[in-house]
Design a protein around this nucleic acid. Sequence first.
DNA 1: GACAGCCATGTTTGCGTTCACATTCTGGCC
DNA 2: GGCCAGAATGTGAACGCAAACATGGCTGTC
Lengths: 351, 351
Amino acid sequence: MSTALPPPHRGPVMSDVAARAGVSHQTVSRVLNGHPHVSATTRTRVLAAIAELGYRRNLSARVLATGRSNVIGVVAQNTTLYGPSSMVQAIGEAALGADLSLTVGHVAGYDATAASRRIVERLVQQGAAGLVFIAPVDAAAEAMRLVPDGVPIVTVDGLPEWQVANVSVDQYTGGMMATRHLLAAGHRTVWHVAGPEQWHGSRAREDGWRAALAEVGAMAPPMARAGWSAASGYQVGRMLARIPDCTAIFAANDHVALGIMRALAEQGRRIPDDVSIIGFDDVPEAGYFHPALTTIRQEFGDVGRQALRLLLDQLATGVKSAESALVEPVLVPRDTVGTPVPVAILEGNKT
Amino acid sequence: MSTALPPPHRGPVMSDVAARAGVSHQTVSRVLNGHPHVSATTRTRVLAAIAELGYRRNLSARVLATGRSNVIGVVAQNTTLYGPSSMVQAIGEAALGADLSLTVGHVAGYDATAASRRIVERLVQQGAAGLVFIAPVDAAAEAMRLVPDGVPIVTVDGLPEWQVANVSVDQYTGGMMATRHLLAAGHRTVWHVAGPEQWHGSRAREDGWRAALAEVGAMAPPMARAGWSAASGYQVGRMLARIPDCTAIFAANDHVALGIMRALAEQGRRIPDDVSIIGFDDVPEAGYFHPALTTIRQEFGDVGRQALRLLLDQLATGVKSAESALVEPVLVPRDTVGTPVPVAILEGNKT
DNA sequence: GACAGCCATGTTTGCGTTCACATTCTGGCC
DNA sequence: GGCCAGAATGTGAACGCAAACATGGCTGTC
């Protein structure tokens, strides 16, 4: 049970305003909702009464009466990560333009499934007009089933088989771009340190990586896996640094790349002379890593706008769609990718 | 105006459940609210009916009827920054334990004041039981005035003069710790690159820095200012790198430190041999910078818990308090602080 | 000058829940 | 066996708002 809450606070209500302005409560409502057929004098009188009383209308009552609300819910988790938090921010900015309010339910704590369930439950109960699921992992999706039919859904980084409107960054292409870029620099093959298995993006990037290797007939080296953190990148990097063949690495994201770079440096392998590396995300500080990190940028702003568009479409037409949008990533070349030096020359230079 | 929304969606209501279970709607309510004096058989019958119908209770109606809600609002901005986003996360986790739901209003877009006003407005209208303002800048606070008297408030990183319950990281002490640490390593004085002027934390850290210098009678060098980004740190760093006297730098935060480090490196100044530097925040990847960054960690988890405690206290007692809590930062020594090499020795080594 | 038609406003009802009170039923005790 | 406490349930109203419908007054037109 919840901690017993104290007696409620109730402010002035519509009829108080009405009394003060000498009109009926309905007229107040009309003024508030911008209905036509209210005389200018009445309107100003009502507005004045509202101001004097400090009246604010009760959203709950409004939602109860109309059955609609103009708030859309966002279900998000891992919001301390750069990707998800940027996404939320972007959706928020897009919503601002559509006169929609955003309620963000942050999935916190250990049990993601239970937590997201609770959040969806609450969002629905609050009468959210639509829901955006930031669902880069399956756990988030499970809660989608709790959403009643009438409420439109858009997922971000969801899976096509969910049959729900979705917008994703084209991680597959991103993976290809990264790999091709490394290949184009002259590397025989590219090693990949993937992100957590459960993340859809990880899988798509891996697929892109494999596809790009296959294009040129390169053999895929064994794939390593990291979390999204620098720490996990460092762990993997310590192994990679001891593999002489490993001259080109495509990292799960920028922070993982950072960890790997550190491990490489500790092992005395120079970047990009000995090893080239490319990240993913383009976090704001990536350009200031040492050396500046070449990476694949995700345009989260676009993602947010598209997600909102998809949601508004459904809201307007009233039918659930399964339309999906892809946002293309872009390569940001910086200083961590170089042409591999043939071993012979390297040897010659050494002494 | 909002885009015209389609007809509402209405699910089964309490009386539907009641009819199905063969009881009155009030009994259903009792079951839902865990009231005593409901027989076991009735309870199971009601529960069954609820499950069969897929009934979910309408939060708006509930809030309307009771005048209270168990959701607390969080007003946040700059949520892509590490600090604020960690804060939100921490509060969310703390709320989970108190059976409270969180609604986060993300202040997005250019006009922070207008945006936060809208958010507060909505949160209040939704009947939030209490509000947490993440208010590291004054803009956020301005909207606090819109909150009606009955609704308790807690600020995070707010100012004492606001007369509101507040929890902050002790930035002043943090600034002192950083400066002392550098001083203890043997530096004559410490340069400071401060964060944006409007942020309260920036000012407190600056004060701490000055105080620590004063303690040992060191002269305060001119203070530089950066944003919170690596890019801005880099800009400032390019100047600092050309100042031979500058051997110890206390940076606004870790990302600024990163930017400075890069500028230093480009200028050929070695860290920590030539210049020592210390950051603030301890972002997860700070230990993987090159070299690993010595920094001051802020315990955001503690902040979140304290904020919630303060809020719950007010909720329970029903009186607004102005109690405030301070969370102590902790020094995380790593590899960017060293003992300055006397110029003579330096010269001797050079050739 | 009568009537249509529109404008400005008021009245009533219902949204789904909880609360306060009323009612019925059960069992125990003298 | 009568009575009473209290458990189990029901009834009606209220929460604050918006929608639907109702009303009265004004303009304009033939």
